[in-house]
Amino acid sequence: MTEPQKTQSKEAADKARRGRNVALALGLVAFVILVFVVTIVRLGGNIVDRPL
């Protein structure tokens, strides 16, 4: 493999890794938000109505 080819394939690998990392981060954030929303939906009404 020539030097420009190596650089090109490294760039492609870096770009693909960046894309995977962004997708993973978005997935994790979405999961956290989902768990939060589910908690609010399941518990929200009960918390508001609880005896003080």
Binding site: K15, A16, R17, G19, A23
Partner: peptide
């Protein structure tokens, strides 16, 4: 080729 998120 390096795997993209689409491959997953």
């Amino acid at each position: 080729a390096p795997a993209s998120w689409r491959d997953y």
